[in-house]
């Protein structure tokens, strides 16, 4: 697989390490009353859809940026790539 990095162009997927579903960006509030249940969801449950999947890749052998890759996981086709920082900021995270 080649991942079209927003800054560096097409890069071999071997340069990256894979973390998982991009929902991991939305870390729950640890001080919320129902934090235990939310962290169980966050840590252990996954949608795991057979189709388009937004997921976190880390460019470990490259510029060490985190990417949100939207990929069709029945075909391995990559639909869209964003910097995870931009996604996190757009979702209201501080960084």
């Amino acid at each position: 697989m080649l991942i079209p990095h927003p800054l560096l162009g097409l890069r071999d997927a071997q340069e990256f390490t894979y973390l998982g579903d991009a929902a991991l960006i939305d870390r729950p509030d640890g001080l919320a009353a129902d934090a235990a249940g939310r962290f169980f969801d966050y840590g252990y449950l996954r949608d795991n859809p057979a189709g388009e999947h937004r997921e976190l890749w880390f460019h470990e052998q490259g510029d060490r940026s985190w990417l949100v890759v939207t990929r069709n996981i029945t075909t391995h086709e990559i639909v869209r790539v964003e910097l995870a920082r931009d996604v996190a900021l757009a979702r209201g995270r501080g960084r």
Binding site: D21, L45, N48, A50
Partner: peptide, 18 residues
């Protein structure tokens, strides 16, 4: 292999990735 897909029919999310 397809557990998440089939159990989604019952509205369940599983501690599983394919």
């Amino acid at each position: 292999g397809n557990s998440s897909r089939v159990m989604a029919l019952a509205g369940m999310r599983l501690p599983i990735e394919s």
